[in-house]
Design a protein around this nucleic acid. Structure first.
Lengths: 219, 219, 219, 219
DNA sequence: CATGAATGAGCCTTCATTCAT
DNA sequence: TATGAATGAAGGCTCATTCAT
C-alpha cells in the first residue's frame, strides 16, 4: 500500500543567497498586496511573480500571514528611520518649532512618495484586516499623531498655540489630513514629478497653523 | 444502522414581508461586515445572525458581492440625504459661509455618529477591496471634498480665503481631517455621550479656517 | 479585482437524512482506515467511496482527525455494550468464575469477529498514531485487562488461583493473548466459518487457567 | 536592497567514515520513528537530529521508505542473533524443554529491554503501515510463534503437553502474551531496574505451562 | 417562499526529493 | 562527499453557491 511519494520533477531555475531570495519574495509580495489587497492576493500569485516554486515561499515565510506581517515590520522599521531623521542641531530648522515640524512632515511625505506600496498598504489595504494586523498597522499612525501632539504642546508652551486647544483632537485632525495628503500624492497621483514636496509640506504645515482665512477672527 | 426515515422537514413559521426580511438580513450583514471586514465575514455568519436558512440569503441577494454592494448603495443614499439637509434659507447659518459649512460638517458628523457601522465600512472595511467597490466607496468621500472645495471657492470669491490657495489640495486636507474625526468619534470612542458634536464641528471648522496659532505671521 | 467566486457547477446526486449520511460516511471511512491505515487513507478516498462531494465530508466532520475520533468513539460504545452483556444471573455461567469469564471472553471474540474493521483499527491501525489517539485506543485494551484482573482476583479469593500471582502481569499476559487471538481470527483468517468461537473461548480460558501441561509440577 | 554577494559556502568540517555516518543517521531515525511513528517523523527531523544537511540523508538512503526498511532489516538481524543464542549443550537449560524455552524467552525479553526502540517499532509503529512493511514486521513475530510451536510439539512428543492441543492456536496465544509483556516491560515501564527479567521469564513460561489455577481440573 | 444538504473550485500548506554548488 | 535552496505533487480544508424538497 504505502504510496511512496512521487518524486517531483525538479527544475531549479537559479540559486540565490537566502537573504536575497527572501527580499525578492517580499518585494513581489508587497507590490501585489499593495495593488490587490491581502485576500485577493494569493500565494500562487506571489510565487509566480517571484518566479519561484510554491514551496519556496514557504521556505522563507511560515504562512501568508507571516509574510504580510514581515512586510509590515519591515515597513515600520523604515518608517521609523525616516521619522528619526532630524535636522542639523545648528540649523534654523532645528530651532523653530514650525520649521522643525515642517521638516519632519516633509520627510514623511518623501517616505511615502518613495514607497507608494507601503503607503497603499498602510492607508488602504491594511485597514480592514482585523485584529491580527490592527496593532501593526496603527503603530505607524500613532507616530504621526504623536509628532503632531508634540508640535502643538510645544506651541502652547511657547504661547503661540491657543492654550485651550484640545491637543488630542487637533493632533488627530493633523494626522488625518497628513494621511490623506500622503495617499493622494503617494498613490493616487500619476505624474509625481509635478509635485513639489517642499512646497507641499510647507503649505500643509502653514495651512494648519494659520488656517485658510486671511484675517484672524475671534476664535 | 440507521433506518431511512423520511427527514422531517422543519417548517419555520416566521413568515415576513419580503422587504422586511431583506432589510433584516442587510442590517445583520452590515453589522458583521463593519465589525469583521468583508472577507472575514461569511455568508453563514450572516445567515446565522439573521436567523434564516442558508439559502434564504440568496433569495434576496444574488451573491455576497451583491449584498455588500446593496449595503453600500443604501448607505450612500442615506449619506446623501444627510448632506442634502440644508439650513433654513432665512437663518444665519444659510448666509454665512463659515456657519453654512459648519452646519454641513455637523450633519456629517452626526450621520457617522448615528451610523457607526457605515462609518467603519466606509473608512476601514471598504478600502482594500479592489476596484469593484472602490468607486462605490469613494463616492462618499468625493462629496466631502466637493463640499470643502465649494466652501473654499466661495471664501476666495469673498476675499476671505487666500486667493492663491490650492483648492484641490486644501479640500483633500479637510476631507482627510474630517474622515479621521468621524472615525475617531464614530467608531473608536466608547463613551459617545461625552462628545458634543456641536462643539466638535465648530472647533473643526474654526481650526481649519484660522489655524492653531494665535497671532498672524507672514504667510 | 475581487475575483467573485466561480459558481460551482452543482450536480447533487441524492438527498439523505443527515444522520444516515453521516453514518454512511463513517462506514466507508472505517473500512478504508481499517484496510489502509490512517495516513494512507485520504479524505478524497473516503469521499469517493461514499459517493459524495469532498465538502460533504466536512459538513459532518470537522476534520480527518475528528472523523477518525468519532469512529473510535463509536467503536468504544459498541465494545462496551458487547462487554456489558452478562449471563443470566440464574444460570451456571453466572455462578462459576471460570464460566463467567469464558462467557465474557466469548462475547469479546464475537464482537471482533463481527466487526473485523474495528479489530483492525484497534489492534493495528490505531497503534502508531501518537498521543492524540493513544488514549482512545488504549481504553479498549484496558477493559480486557481489567476483566482479567477481576477474574484472577476472585480466583485468589476463592483459593483457586495462586495467591502470590502477580495480577498485573498475569492480566497483561491474558490481554496480550486475547488480542492476538482476536486479531488472528477476526482479521487474518479468511474462512471464518471454520472457527468455532465457543470452542475458541473455552480453550482460551482453560489453557490459561490450567496451562498446557498435563501433570502438575512443583510451581 | 541586498547586494548579491557570493553566498559563503559553509563548509562543515566533520567528515566521517561513510559507514559510521550511515549508522549515526539510522540511530537517530530509529529513535524518532520509535517515538513518533513513521508518518509523524519527517526527514527533516531526522536530519536535524543527526546534525547533517538535508541532502546528506539521501546520500545514504534512497528514500524515507528505504531508510525505514533498512532499520527494519537491521533490527531483524539483531533479533535473530539474540534468538540464535542457545544454552551450553552440556547445561541443564539445554536438556529440559521447559528450561530451554525459558532460556529463549529470557533472551527475547532481554533483547527488547535493551532495545526499546525496536520494541516500539515492531509492536506499535510498524503495524499500520501497509503491505510494504507488513512482511518485514511480521517476520519477527513469526519467530516467536515458531519457537512456541516447537516447544509445544516437543512437549506433546514427550507426553507432557496435551496431545490434542491446537498447536497453531496455542502458539499464537503464547506469541500474543509474549509480545504484550515485551512491550509492557520494554516500553511502558519507566523504572526498568525494578524488573527482574529472570523472574519474568520464568513466571511467563510457568504460567503458560501450568496455568493460573492451583489444582488441575479435568481439561 | 424557505430550507439546508450537497457541491466543488480553489486556497493554503506540507514535505519527500532533487541537484547545482 | 556534503550542503541546503529549490521544487511541486498532493493533501487538508473552506466557503460561496445551488437546488431538490
Amino acid at each position: 500500500m504505502l504510496k511512496s511519494r512521487k518524486s517531483p520533477r525538479v527544475r531549479i531555475v537559479k540559486r540565490m543567497p537566502p537573504e536575497q531570495r527572501k527580499q525578492q519574495i517580499m518585494d513581489c509580495a508587497r507590490k501585489l498586496f499593495a495593488a490587490g489587497g491581502y485576500y485577493q492576493t494569493q500565494i500562487s500569485d506571489i510565487q509566480k511573480a517571484s518566479n519561484v516554486a510554491r514551496g519556496t515561499v514557504y521556505q522563507y515565510f511560515k504562512s501568508k500571514d507571516d509574510l504580510f506581517t514581515e512586510i509590515l515590520e519591515d515597513l515600520f522599521i523604515k518608517w521609523k528611520e525616516a521619522l528619526a531623521d532630524t535636522p542639523d542641531p545648528e540649523s534654523e530648522e532645528y530651532k523653530s518649532g514650525l520649521k522643525f515640524f515642517t521638516y519632519k512632515i516633509k520627510r514623511s511625505f518623501e517616505f511615502f512618495a518613495d514607497n507608494p506600496d507601503y503607503c497603499s498598504i498602510l492607508l488602504k489595504i491594511g485597514l480592514g484586516l482585523g485584529e491580527n494586523f490592527d496593532t501593526l498597522i496603527s503603530r505607524f499612525d500613532h507616530q504621526i499623531v504623536e509628532l503632531a501632539k508634540k508640535y502643538l504642546t510645544v506651541g502652547i508652551k511657547l504661547g503661540r498655540v491657543h492654550p485651550d486647544t484640545d491637543v488630542e483632537l487637533a493632533a488627530n485632525m493633523i494626522g488625518g489630513a497628513f494621511t490623506r495628503m500622503a495617499y493622494f500624492y503617494g498613490v493616487t497621483k500619476k505624474d509625481k514629478d509635478s509635485i513639489n514636496i517642499d512646497l507641499l509640506s510647507e503649505t500643509f504645515v502653514k495651512t494648519l497653523s494659520y488656517g485658510f482665512f486671511i484675517e484672524k477672527d475671534v476664535k
